[in-house]
Design a protein around this nucleic acid. Structure first.
Length: 908
RNA sequence: GCAGGGGUGGCGGAGCCUGGAAAACGCGCAGGACUUAAGAUCCUGUGGCUUAGUGCCUACGCAGGUUCAAAUCCUGCCCCCUGCACCA
């Protein structure tokens, strides 16, 4: 069996016939897309899952006679490609080893991959080839790259639209920053891939003298009401900084090194901490307090200066106790919670037996007390008395900031974090940062309206989109470097990748036509007409024609993606459509899927367990991979790729092809009727399952169950005849395995392509409950008889089968319907049955009364078994005699145990 | 911390919405057939017990509750996974 040969043959035929290149007009259309790939590596089977689901969706629409568009392009925006090309040029051993060992790239290629454009071309061709080998129904005429000049024009237009609507704003922004590289860092730039977390801290000014302040930093501004003193590390040096307002602020020298990137000011002097220790300062509440020394104060954290709240901070309490000042500045308790001690910090220190500030338990005490007070505490002092602590924290911070007594600084919550270059990462404030204002409430509402009209598959993810739209704030939409489109309002910047990929589906509708045009023709007015119908069609000779094409394909009928995009790309996609397009062009649905695990583990470069898509196709064949990555789990679940399963699928495909030799004729025996009933039942159920993208269930039903049933049929049939079966089944299953279907279709002598056929109509008359129930009785009989034969001790010569009498069926049906013995016995009385036997029989059924299946009449059950006696004899290796219970031979008293669907079995 | 999802055999996982024979389907494992042998393939079995009468018992994270009936509905607890933005 040569699955690869079959696949290649049909891919070529489809390509030559331009089967997947739809006209931009005609009957009812469907337009489906999936997130375009980022070509900095070959695709693996995980990518294959999303695209295969998309392809199945598209192919099913084709079977329903729709004009289907499924385009593809490449996303090259951003820095990863540049970074990777740079690493190639630097001959980074780790990367080159991945290239050789996982991706299988010959080392002769390495030189050219150092150029970003060549890198893009190499991997995008690799990906495109893989998609073709998977048999995807893609219209490649519309392919583009996001650094193409034509696409740049489109994104410029997009940004200008947002700007016109006031949805693009400029402001300041904090970033994790490497002072040595002078660049933004995110998790993959750090040592150990730590994600730098930026956290808000309040800096409060304590007056040293008029116009001069010590700046303390704190997570708990509300505790300022309980402050007793300020702590300075005696080993630290303070810098005196003149800020824009003219005030002089003191920070620890180490702290200032990073704070200088977010607080603008000039260092005008230095002073040793020792000179300040012992002096008094004035708190923002006007209270005079002393400055003490404490070695636990870390000079590079926050401002490097802290305030002391001994009633609520175990460290402060311990430090005061160590220097014997607890009497001089007694703790002031300002927070209470149910069961709180007068001095909570003291209580926690004593409860945990914390020795001093160097004791690791001091941290534990701090954490526990903080948790307690933050969750359950209320203020009991100051103007916010009675307020929950969490709320007061906000209020106090805001109030002091407004009064100029405090300001906000940002720190790394999980610091210190180190850049790959070895430098310590700091927080930088950027002033001329552009944002897309996803925080805009009106916009959010419009997006929710759009979401409300969309169908979301799986439906359970809908609330995720809602949550995300709700908490989205301004999103920085430019970067200072990377591939992509220059930001039209600041051409030194590039439009960031998640911002240039939100409405590009509209671009597909005309991309093939724009290719022949000059970029100078692609003006905002031109796009206004094509995409929005604004202005006059005379703006360009082609405008009218392109407008029609756009209106034909839009709105997008389905957006497919991996589940990882639910919290970023997909909400942006909804928001931008809601902003730019009128409701008639809003997208119709989103379909997301989970990942693919490799033998139970997450695929990763470090584990080296990535299975590249093309390699998988070579090993197992496209159809097998297609089926393996989509039918193994529910859509939203992760699915597991196992070699043994793929091998099993491949074998079953081989079995199916082998059965083609019986596909020349049809027949009309009991076995054929049964198979036809089973097939048509599936054809009846399949459309609903396809519509819900219930691919796992479809796979179970149309593949596993069907092959099992074929197996039973092959045993049952006297001369197998599968012509009509294959005609229908091949088409119904073709979305999953188009190559196999095409092969079967042509083996049946059909003209034209299977992939252009219509979904087979379910013949409801062929669905026959009695035939199916009869077969069930037969197969269960074999099972039971074999079980009994095991106990029999020797191979029986004869097997007598007795079907249950009609009166039992009457009692049985009454019981099944009423779930009660009385109506059944009533029925028995009316029908003059033996009441003693009837009662005993009914009693026996009572236990499983909720689980009774409908029973056949004795006549039908009898004739099903009688017809099958030859088959039964063969299966059981003994002569099988089928009789009715009433005709039991002498000595066959056990015939009386027969029940509907469970004939009595007597071995001899 | 906040938000979302989830705990069912040796394993992956059905079943939960809409209460009514839990473990579909697959993998793995065991036995058999075929084979010189192995692999592949096919058949049979795979929670426990039991019987020549097609059955009985035990099990769905823990603890309660509702119900004739709970994996399924309700309450509390324990544990696990994912995301939290400038990153594609």
């Amino acid at each position: 069996m040569d699955l690869t040969g079959i696949a290649e043959k049909w891919q070529k035929e489809w390509g030559d016939a331009h089967v997947y290149e739809p006209l931009d007009e005609g009957g009812e259309k469907k337009f489906y897309t999936a997130a375009f790939p980022y070509p900095n590596s070959p695709q693996h089977i995980g990518h294959g899952r999303t695209y295969t689901i998309l392809d199945i969706h598209a192919r099913y629409a084709r079977l329903n006679g729709k004009n289907v568009l499924l385009p593809m392009a490449f996303h090259v925006t951003g820095t990863p490609i540049l970074a990777m090309a740079k690493k190639v040029r630097e001959k980074d051993p780790e990367l080159l080893s991945i290239f050789s060992n996982i991706y299988g790239i010959p080392s002769s290629k390495f030189a050219e991959l150092g150029e970003p454009e060549k890198l893009v071309m190499y991997f995008s061709e690799e990906i495109e080839q893989g998609m073709k080998e998977m048999g995807y129904a893609i219209d490649w005429r519309r392919k583009f790259y996001t650094f193409d000049a034509h696409f740049n024009k489109f994104i410029e237009w997009h940004m200008k639209k947002l700007h016109e609507m006031g949805l693009i704003v400029k402001g300041s922004h904090r970033l994790a920053w490497c002072p040595s590289d002078n660049n933004v860092v995110s998790s993959h730039d750090t040592k150990g891939d730590v994600d730098p977390e930026i956290e808000k801290v309040v800096a409060i000014k304590f007056a040293l003298s008029a116009g001069e302040y010590l700046v303390v930093s704190t997570y708990r501004p509300e505790t300022v009401y309980g402050v007793t003193n300020v702590w300075l590390n005696p080993q630290s040096t303070l810098v005196k900084v003149k800020v824009d307002s003219g005030e002089m602020l003191y920070f620890a020298k180490e702290a200032w090194e990073s704070l200088s990137l977010q607080v603008s000011g000039k260092v005008v002097g230095e002073v040793s901490a020792k000179e300040i220790i012992g002096k008094n300062v004035e708190s923002p509440l006007g209270k005079k307090i002393p400055v003490f020394e404490a070695r636990f104060v870390e000079q590079e954290v926050g401002t490097g200066i802290v305030m002391s709240v001994p009633a609520h901070a175990p460290f402060d309490y311990l430090a005061l106790r160590e220097i014997g000042k607890l009497k001089e500045v007694p703790p002031i308790s300002i927070i209470e919670y149910r069961g709180s001690a007068p001095i909570p910090a003291q209580e926690y220190v004593e409860k945990l037996g914390v020795k001093d500030t160097t004791d690791p338990l001091a941290d534990t005490a701090t954490r526990e007390l903080y948790k307690k007070e933050a969750h359950w505490g209320r203020m009991k002092a100051g103007e916010f008395s009675g307020m929950p602590v969490m709320e007061a924290k906000e209020k106090v911070g805001e109030k002091f900031e407004k009064e100029g007594k405090a300001f906000t600084i940002y720190v790394l919550a999980n610091g210190p974090v180190f850049c790959r270059c070895g430098c310590k990462i700091v927080v930088k404030k950027v002033d001329d940062q552009w944002f897309i204002d996803y925080g805009n409430v009106e916009w959010k509402n419009k997006a929710k309206e759009c979401l409300g009209q969309m169908s979301i598959v799986p439906e359970i993810t809908r609330k995720e989109y809602l949550n995300t739209i709700d908490w989205l704030k301004e999103k920085a939409c430019t970067r200072s470097s990377g591939l992509g489109t220059k930001f039209p309002f600041d051409e030194t910047k590039i439009v960031e990748p998640l911002s240039d990929s939100t409405i590009y589906m509209a671009f597909y509708t005309v991309a093939h036509e724009l290719k022949g045009m000059k970029t100078s023709e692609l003006t905002p007015q031109f796009f206004d007409y094509v995409f929005l119908g604004r202005g006059r069609k005379e703006v360009h000779p082609k405008a009218e024609m392109l407008r029609k094409k756009f209106l034909y394909w839009y709105p997008l009928d389905a957006r497919h993606s991996g589940a990882d995009l639910v919290r970023n790309h997909l909400p942006f996609f909804i928001l931008n459509h809601a902003a730019i397009f009128p409701p008639a062009q809003w997208p119709k649905s989103i379909v997301v899927n989970g990942f693919v695990l490799m033998e139970g583990k997450k695929m990763s470069k470090s584990l080296g367990n990535i299975l590249p898509l093309r390699k998988a196709v070579r090993e197992y064949g496209a159809d097998v991979i297609r089926f393996s990555v989509v039918a193994g789990a529910d859509l939203s679940q992760d699915t597991n790729f196992e070699k043994s399963v793929a091998v099993g699928v491949k074998e079953r495909v081989g079995d199916l092809l082998a059965l083609l030799e019986y596909a020349r004729t049809d027949r009309d025996g009991q076995a054929e009727k049964w198979l036809r009933s089973r097939l048509n039942r599936k054809l009846k159920e399949a459309p609903q399952l396809y519509a819900n993208m219930a691919l796992r269930e479809l796979g179970q039903m149309l593949f596993y169950e069907m092959t099992q049933e074929l197996h039973w049929y092959m045993k049952r049939a006297k001369k197998p005849a599968l012509k009509t079966f294959f005609e229908k089944w091949a088409i119904a299953f073709s979305p999953f395995m188009p190559h196999l279907s095409e092969e079967i279709w042509h083996a049946l002598g059909k003209k034209g392509f299977a992939v252009n056929e219509r979904f087979p109509h379910a013949d409801e008359d062929a669905i026959d409950d009695e035939i199916e129930a009869g077969e069930r009785v037969i197969s269960e009989l074999i099972y039971d008889a074999e079980k009994i034969a095991e106990r029999f001790g020797k191979t029986p010569e004869k097997v007598y089968v007795y079907t249950a009498s009609e009166w039992k069926r009457g009692v049985y049906e009454e019981m099944r319907e009423s779930k009660n013995m009385n109506p059944a016995l009533e029925w028995a009385r009316k029908n003059k049955a033996d009441m003693g036997k009837a009662a005993a029989f009914a009693k026996g059924l009572m236990k499983r009364v909720h689980a009774l299946q409908p029973a056949l009449s004795e006549e039908v059950e009898f004739s099903a078994l009688f017809d099958a006696s030859e088959f039964l004899s063969k299966e059981l290796g003994a002569r099988v005699v089928v009789k009715k219970e009433a005709d039991a031979a002498a000595g066959h008293e056990k015939a009386s145990v027969a029940a509907p669907g469970k004939p009595a079995i007597i071995l001899e």
